[in-house]
Design a protein around this nucleic acid. Structure first.
Length: 551
RNA sequence: GGCCCGUUGGUCAAGAGGUUAAGACACCGCCCUUUCACGGCGGUAUCGCGAGUUCGAUUCUCGCACGGGUCACCA
């Protein structure tokens, strides 16, 4: 067989050679320790939390070593693609502060010298390498139809043989030049296959940065390199792109582990140096139905989508810190010791990653998020809440903008002291949190141990006792005195000793005021709330409550 | 089924051939306290199973079980 002639027959329009591309995309001029990593999703528009996790780890690895992190779009499957699919991915990344050094910025724009960064635009590159492989007798066209392939698989299954296109089953391996030429001329569709030289009794070995030493049988399959439409499969594109883009560390989901033998052979026949592999375990979720674990599912779990976290308003810092604690569990300890430091100063290590898939824990995320938000200033909370509301709650955004100073005061309640409140986990929580400041209470959670008359009496008395402008130190003792004069214990402890001699205790009295003003039994510090509301509003609410209680 | 990966409390997990088997979240109790949070103190709870190596194994080896992945012209 004249392979040169076959290569010309198959790829007559391809003039460039691998050598041309090697020159076009030279080795990066980086220090030896610098790592080049990438995130390479399909443009489905949907960014999975696991994708963000992988991207984040790639970004951290590159940053830490002074390397390069880039975004490549793997759009070799038209079926997966949706319109503006790149934007969704790019937005998901940027919403959570993941920045790229190279790659796709929008649907069509990119930065970097190693592009194009969209695989559909790299067709000639792949074909040049394929042409070279054909020339060397390492790849061949295959005209088998789907039906023929099915038939092969069926007999293999019946005979308990490994399924696939390999060895004696690879009938197109033995086609003559004339047979091939005839089929090509008649327009028969074909794929290009690798002529595997693998031997399943031999084993490959590699050291995965996360999983450690892994050993597997060599690949023997004549896998498809180029599909009927001339577009490469994932495997072939991976080899060519990661080589040409000079990726040093391939960080990807561990569903790829079983394909590593294919990648080994591909890198070998193409004459490429193998990258380092790091296979990440997927993020799991507890499955209510089976009681077991399963991958977070795009269909069943809203929290699988990165956009979910943005929509409900988790700060990106909280999400990233949560992902970091999953990735390197010693991060939590480091954070506790270095509360002021930037996340970037943490020494992230691929080797510290867990080999098993972690269950996604929304409760833990909430905790991390509350701890983060409680360190922010009231102005920052206002600003972040406003930005969130502008995107997802227009009415609330309007309210915040029209009452800027007031809203900032609300967010200032019990904030900035040594023990700040920790009750906001996400910006969406602020809607409920601030509600009674913007509207008079509709429902009142009155406590059951007091009669309406008792409560009305407390409020009427309180109105006469309360003076605008009291300090916190003056305020509560007055409430105590008032409680005592109305027949309530000054302190809860007194009441517990002698419950019969009192109507209740100061806590009940304060509670009546609290409910009258806010409608709720549980709120932040009452004194601060009253001051934020202002004297006029306070009086109105007390009067309104008295009217309701005495009607 | 073949191949591969994994398995320490409810969750995330540290750990090393000999430890009272860290810590965080969650949960429970107590304290603080005008409510709720916060904070402080304390508590419940973990090495999948069976062999082997060893004076000793949760740690090393081998089986098994269970869970997961993969076996496409999808990535």
């Amino acid at each position: 067989m004249d392979y040169e002639k076959l290569a010309e027959l198959l790829f007559k329009n391809i003039d460039k050679t691998p050598e041309d591309y090697e020159r076009e995309y030279p080795c990066r001029n980086l220090p030896e320790v610098a790592k080049v990593t990438r995130f390479a999703p399909s443009p489905t528009g949907f960014l999975h939390i696991g994708g963000l996790f992988a991207a984040f780890i790639g970004e951290r690895t590159a940053r830490k070593t002074g390397g390069v992190f880039y975004l490549r779009i793997e759009d070799t499957d038209k079926k997966r693609e949706i319109e503006n699919g790149v934007s969704g991915i790019v937005k998901g990344l940027s919403d959570f502060g993941i920045t790229i050094d190279e790659g796709m910025l929008t649907e069509t724009e990119s930065i970097g010298k190693y592009g194009p960064y969209t695989q559909s635009q790299r067709k000639e590159i792949y074909q040049a390498y394929c042409k070279d492989l054909v020339k060397k007798g390492l790849a061949y066209p295959c005209f088998c139809t789907a039906e023929e392939l099915d038939a092969i698989r069926k007999t293999q299954e019946e005979n308990k043989q490994n399924p696939g296109y390999y060895g004696k089953f690879a009938k197109c391996r033995n086609l003559t030049y004339d047979e091939i030429e005839e089929k090509i001329k008649s327009g028969t569709p074909y794929v290009l296959r690798l002529k595997s030289a693998g031997d399943e009794t031999r084993r490959i070995k590699f050291d995965d940065a996360i999983k450690g030493e892994i050993e597997m049988p060599e690949n023997v399959q004549d896998i498809v390199l180029l599909k009927t439409d001339g577009i490469p499969t994932y495997h072939f594109a991976h080899a060519v792109d990661d080589h040409l883009m000079r990726t040093t560390d391939v960080i990807r989901g561990d569903e790829w582990i079983s394909s590593v033998p294919i990648h080994f052979e591909l890198f070998k026949v193409l004459g490429f140096k193998l990258p380092k592999y790091a296979h990440i375990s997927p993020i799991m979720k507890e499955d209510a139905e089976t009681g077991g674990k399963r991958k977070l599912s795009k269909r069943k779990d809203p929290e699988a989508a990165v956009s979910y976290y943005h929509e409900v308003g988790y700060p990106k810092e909280a999400v990233l810190e949560y992902l970091l604690t999953i990735a390197n569990s010693n991060f939590e300890e480091w954070r506790a010791e270095n509360p002021e430091k930037s996340r970037d100063d943490f020494d992230f290590k691929l080797s510290n990653m867990s080999k098993a898939g972690a269950l996604f824990d929304l409760v833990k995320l909430n905790d991390i998020s509350k701890n983060y938000i409680c360190t922010l200033s009231k102005e920052t909370v206002y600003q972040n809440t406003l930005e969130w509301a502008k995107a997802y709650d227009a009415d609330f955004a309007k309210l915040l903008e029209e009452n800027r100073d007031y809203a900032i005061k609300i967010f200032g309640i019990e904030r900035g002291n040594e023990k700040p409140r920790k009750d906001i986990a996400k910006w969406q929580d602020t809607v409920e949190y601030t509600k009674y400041f913007f509207e008079k209470p509709q429902n009142f959670e009155w406590q059951e141990n007091l009669s309406k008359a008792d409560m009305a009496e407390i409020l009427k008395t309180y109105k006469t006792v309360y003076k605008d402008g009291e300090t916190a130190e003056e305020w509560f003792p007055k409430v105590r005195d008032m409680a005592e004069s109305l027949g309530y214990a000054k302190a809860p402890k007194l009441y517990k000793k002698n419950p019969e001699s009192y109507k209740g205790h100061v806590g009940d009295v304060a509670s009546v005021i609290r409910v009258a003003v806010t409608g709720r039994r549980n709120t932040p510090d009452l004194y601060e709330i009253i001051n934020v509301l202002g004297y006029t509003e306070f009086l109105e609410r007390i009067d309104r409550a008295i009217a309701l209680l005495t009607e």
